[in-house]
Design a protein around this nucleic acid. Structure first.
Length: 533
RNA sequence: GGGCUCGUAGCUCAGUCAGGCAGAGCGUCUGGCUUUUAACCAGACGGCCUAGGGUUCAAAUCCCUACGAGCCCGCCA
């Protein structure tokens, strides 16, 4: 039986295997920015980043690149697109107009927020855009080889994937100069000297394009061409490419036989499942975008979500209550005094630079935030009174913002409460004993200086003692002897929650009350005790 | 039709590559401060490791076969 300390993190296992082949490596990842880039896609880049970091840690000479497939055609009018996009279906994404009009083109619209998110996650690959790589001629050699060996590639596709490419099939798809589409053209000839390709298009047009940017290789050829052109040695990819006869299988053979290149070390990863809604998918609209998640939790928690799970296991992700457990778990791990080597490694790989930490737990801030009604001045006031370090105000602000967004976007109802501005009508249901308690409680609080959470807590429980100040006050109001006061603390707490929140339960009472203004409480409890419907 | 991955405590999962006492967190329960609530601390409960077979001195771990779950592929990622 191995102890946790003996476990090697999967990223280090990958690094070790890869290092057995050589010291110099290029880790690559790529995503098509055809829709909101979601946390399922994030798995790819975080996985790549983990492998990259592990390689660097072992002294390898490693680089990390991210290729945005901006030259892919728009496949269809996705549910989140306007119908007017019908005319753009088939055009390369970088030639399709931006949905909001503020970006250079369609792919930039989705790419930009993703790149911002990468920055926050502490992931810094060299970013390439496929359309630029093609236009710069990075793929030209590969295009020449692929066109020349068209039949060989077709044979590989047939033998591995079991389907015969059509006679008109070509590894290269020209962009039609008339209709702008890339998936409607047929290659009719090419010139290796001039580096041009002739085509005819189903729109009736025909012409000649340059190999530099005039079109792109079909996916199954594009991928191995990229390996060769950039020198990719390690690449994570989704299980969609990992099927028998899938694009990794064909890519591996095409790389070897057409481009004379060994396929990169594969890291196959599973999907992230969203709650009970199934796999995330940009085209179906079942999506939690990375940008949304970064509004809600620190980036390191998102990294941790990916890092702690082996790539081949699927991850269940739920941004509602289960997200709190994740945050909790991470905070706990973070505060362990002597973490084992495995835990330490998880933390290292989850680490993102430039993140600030506070010692305030996320869950605690949920209460503080709501007690303060979201007002940051009040939040700081409460935080200070609770004895937390307040020097790092910026970090506390970040945490408060996260919590505020979480409450608004994902929090289940039971986690929410609000301190009512007026006495809640539920006060009508208070019993005589509860009223007497609130009146006495109000009076005693008003006579004291500042009370701590514990003070409040103890004061409530003092109702159980016959000779306490509270019991005597209540007895007088109820016109009975102190020993006849029958106060169940449970009922008293309910009275407190009813008066302040209009509900039967709430956050840990003593601590909660200490985060509210004393004068407010005195007034509120007095009113509640006198309330007559 | 073909393939991949997963199945371990109520829940989420480590541990499987490299066989050697069945693990963690959460939840639950109990306890700690005269103190049931949504902060804190300690402890306990909790398991035929999906099933069956094989290899082995020894199997959650390796092999085979079922079953269950999820997913992918069938030149449109």
């Amino acid at each position: 039986m191995k102890r946790m300390a003996d476990i090697t993190h999967w990223a280090d296992v990958v690094a070790d295997e890869v290092l057995a082949k050589g010291r110099k490596h290029l880790v690559a990842t790529g995503i098509t920015p055809s829709g909101h880039i979601h946390i399922g896609n994030m798995r790819e880049v975080v996985t790549a980043d983990a492998a990259y970091r592990a390689l660097l840690d072992k002294g390898a000479q490693a680089e990390f690149v991210y290729i945005a497939d901006t030259y892919d055609p728009l496949r269809k009018v996705y549910p989140f697109l306007d119908e007017s996009y019908a005319e753009h279906v088939g055009k390369p994404l970088s030639n399709v107009p931006c949905p909001c009009g503020k970006h250079q083109n369609y792919s930039e619209h989705y790419l930009e927020p993703f790149l911002v998110a990468l920055e926050r996650l502490g992931i810094h690959p060299t970013v390439y855009r496929a359309d630029e790589l093609y236009k710069q001629g990075v793929y030209t050699d590969a295009i020449k080889k692929a066109l020349a060996k068209r039949n060989e590639i077709a044979a590989i596709l047939q033998s591995v994937s079991g389907k015969t490419p059509a006679d008109t099939w070509s590894p290269f798809n020209p962009i039609c100069s008339a209709c702008g589409k890339i998936n409607t053209t047929i290659v009719t000839g090419f010139d290796q000297e001039a580096e041009t390709v002739d085509y005819s298009c189903s729109c009736g047009n025909s012409g000649t394009v340059s190999m530099k940017g005039g079109g792109k290789l079909t996916w199954r050829v594009d991928w191995p061409a990229r390996w060769k052109a950039l020198g990719v040695t390690v690449e994570p990819y989704g299980k969609d490419h990992a099927s028998k006869g899938g694009s990794y299988d064909t890519g591996m053979l095409i790389a070897k036989e057409v481009f004379d290149y060994d396929a990169p070390f594969p890291i196959v990863y599973e999907w992230i499942m969203l709650g009970n809604e199934g796999a995330m998918s940009s085209s179906s609209g079942v999506v939690v975008s990375i940008s949304d998640m970064l509004k809600v939790v620190p980036p390191e928690v998102l990294r941790y979500l990916i890092i702690r799970t082996k790539p081949e296991k699927h991850i269940k992700f739920d941004p509602a209550q289960p997200l709190l457990n994740l945050v909790d778990e991470f905070e706990r791990l973070h505060s362990v005094d002597a973490p084992g080597s495995y835990e330490k490694r998880i933390l290292e790989l989850s680490h993102a630079v430039g993140i600030c930490h506070t010692d305030i737990p996320f869950k605690h801030m949920i209460t503080i935030y709501q007690a303060a009604g979201g007002d940051f001045g009040k939040i700081m006031h409460i935080v200070k009174r609770a004895g937390y370090d307040t020097a790092n105000e910026r970090c506390i602000k970040e945490l408060a913002d996260n919590v505020g967004n979480w409450l608004e976007m994902y929090a289940p109802e039971f986690a929410k409460f609000s301190v009512k501005n007026e006495l809640p009508v539920q006060a009508a249901s208070l019993s005589e004993t509860q009223r007497a308690f609130l009146a006495s409680f109000s009076k005693l609080i008003s006579l004291r200086a500042e009370l701590s959470g514990e003070d409040y807590h103890n004061l409530v429980y003092s109702a159980k003692e016959q000779d306490s100040e509270l019991t005597r006050e209540m007895a007088q109001l109820l016109d009975v002897k102190p020993e006849q006061v029958q106060a169940d603390p449970k009922e008293l707490f309910k009275a407190v929650y009813t008066a302040v929140l209009g509900q039967q339960s709430g956050p840990k009472a003593g601590w909660f009350l200490s985060s509210l203004e004393k004068d407010f409480l005195v007034e509120r409890f007095r009113k509640a005790s006198e309330y007559k419907p």
